[in-house]
Amino acid sequence: MKIFTYQPPSIPWLDIRYQDRDIIVINKPSGLLSNPGRAENTFDSAINRLLQRYPEAILVHRLDCATSGIMVFALNKKAESNIKTQFQNRVTGKYYVALVQGVITDDSGKIDLAMKADISQPPLQLIADDGKSATTYFEVLERRVDTTLVKLKPITGRTHQLRLHMKAIGHTILGDDFYGDDNIMTASDRLCLHAEHLQINHPFSHKVVKFYSKHPF
């Protein structure tokens, strides 16, 4: 595992995809924390960048620092409560796109492997029968020479779920500096995981709204 040096990208500073009176949606770049860590040098984050322009912005969900893609933020307390409840009750619709090692032979499948924290190596996780249930559906989008572009739909939201599930079936996500070997880490200068689509019920109108940011792989 690489030693983590936090150097968030500055361009674009904020890639805003949608805004109304209740929510704001951004396309978060890989390498930017969703919210600040404890260390002083981790202050720069998606929520703190938003707060500079929108002091009322509220974080309602997270993406891993290395993961890029669609994030929604609330702009008032009612919207915050509504959207958080949607995530907790798993009524949101979301999928990710990843570029993984090797060629996946099955066109689609289900990964149902429980997970828990690896207490000897935080923040890593591990597959464990006594862990919390974790389910991911996958669908092959494109088979390349020695990699596969795959759509991933997590049903649960465990820490590092997509990274660990793909590794468990022998197809580690390229650029994964937590669970990949040297070949995986040198195959890409970033984690090849992108939150491409998010669907929620709008907290005010209650209509279904969908947000999309095409993957860069």
Rank of each mutant, 00 (worst) to 15 (best):
D182P: 13
G93N: 03
I104A: 11
D181Q: 07
N48C: 04
V97Y: 11
K84P: 01
F178E: 00
F4Q: 14
D129I: 09
T92K: 14
L75F: 08
K151A: 13
K78I: 15
V25P: 03
Q125F: 14
H194T: 04
D106M: 04
T67K: 11
A98N: 05
V60G: 01
L99F: 13
L162S: 02
L174Q: 04
T136F: 00
Y6I: 03
R90W: 02
D107H: 13
H215V: 12
P12Y: 03
R49T: 12
G37W: 04
S34A: 05
D189C: 09
R17S: 10
Q52V: 14
F4D: 13
M71P: 14
I3G: 11
F43N: 05
D189R: 13
G170M: 03
F178S: 01
A74V: 08
V145W: 13
L75Y: 08
I169Q: 03
A134Q: 08
H160V: 03
D15Q: 07
L193W: 15
N183I: 13
G37L: 05
G93H: 15
K2F: 09
T85A: 09
I111Q: 02
R53T: 14
N35F: 14
S120A: 14
K153Q: 09
D107V: 10
P36D: 11
T136Y: 00
C65D: 13
P55H: 08
F217D: 03
Y6P: 05
P9I: 10
D20Y: 12
D189K: 11
M115L: 06
I200C: 00
F73E: 00
I58P: 02
W13C: 13
F73R: 00
T148W: 00
P12H: 05
V97L: 09
R38N: 12
Q88R: 15
V150W: 00
M71W: 12
A66M: 14
R90V: 01
Q161I: 07
L191Q: 08
N48I: 12
I23R: 00
L32R: 03
T159H: 15
L99E: 08
F138E: 00
Q86R: 05
T148C: 06
P8T: 00
H215W: 11
R190V: 10
A74P: 07
L141M: 06
I184W: 11
Y54K: 04
L152Y: 11
I70V: 15
L50M: 07
R53D: 12
G131H: 06
G93C: 10
V60A: 03
L33D: 06
P122R: 13
I11Y: 07
S68W: 15
S205I: 09
L63P: 01
I111S: 09
K151E: 05
H160L: 08
R90G: 00
K214L: 15
V72E: 04
G175T: 06
A128K: 14
K110Y: 14
L149S: 07
R190S: 14
F73S: 03
G31V: 01
A46R: 01
I111C: 12
M166Y: 06
T85F: 11
Y179N: 00
D22Y: 11
